[in-house]
Write a protein that binds this DNA or RNA. Sequence first.
DNA 1: TATCTATTTGCTTATTTGGCAATATAGCCA
DNA 2: TGGCTATATTGCCAAATAAGCAAATAGATA
Lengths: 113, 113
Amino acid sequence: MNDKQKTIYGMRAKIIKALAHPARLLIIDELAKQPLCVCDIREHIGTDLSTVSKHLSVLKNVGIVKDERRGVQIFYSLRCPCVSSFITCAEQVLEITTGEQVRALAQKRPQRK
Amino acid sequence: MNDKQKTIYGMRAKIIKALAHPARLLIIDELAKQPLCVCDIREHIGTDLSTVSKHLSVLKNVGIVKDERRGVQIFYSLRCPCVSSFITCAEQVLEITTGEQVRALAQKRPQRK
DNA sequence: TATCTATTTGCTTATTTGGCAATATAGCCA
DNA sequence: TGGCTATATTGCCAAATAAGCAAATAGATA
């Protein structure tokens, strides 16, 4: 991996890493429906407000969400809706693997290939 | 976030986390072209063989790749090609953000909104 | 100024990563 | 069959990174 590749793949990984957390995936799911303020999101996640804020800043730093102040509240929304496709794909991987597990369990007898 | 959501989003995050590393993204990119053995991948990445093997096991554990022995070598391939779309989406996010940075730099004067 | 909302900072704990060395595994050949 | 070799994996450690909570800080509005 040369320097150019390191840069490119490093930047991509940074974005994907920002999504690689249960709370942040939930945030993405909710923001895909509508923009929300921090306290709204806090209710969905159920952790400390500062934790929510940190997750949002992670997503904001890599450009996945944007924020906009409306009075005392700050609303977040998706800047790039395609991130929802991450979840779809993750679901497909899950289906493939769990599907195979189910089939493997069902095949207690030697299978005819 | 209730228990069911924790499970669902946890599983999804696990899959996405498996992709959230520069070396593993490069592996995905290469495997999208053709199946490769560990030593082939090692040449692309340029780290210790054991490191490559670990990355592959991370991908295998979540079901993103599968392995198959051919003679003395073990070939890895994508089990779910949709993971390539992660990279495409990451590119889009990058374009949006870097595009905005470029525009922001170009606008040294106050902009008419 | 008082209050409501959100962010930042400091700190501890937990997780991830990469390299080295040791170990395991399968194929191949005498 | 038994041993040899090429290939791949695992264990262990140190360094780097991330997560979560709590307290302090900032910004808007009445």
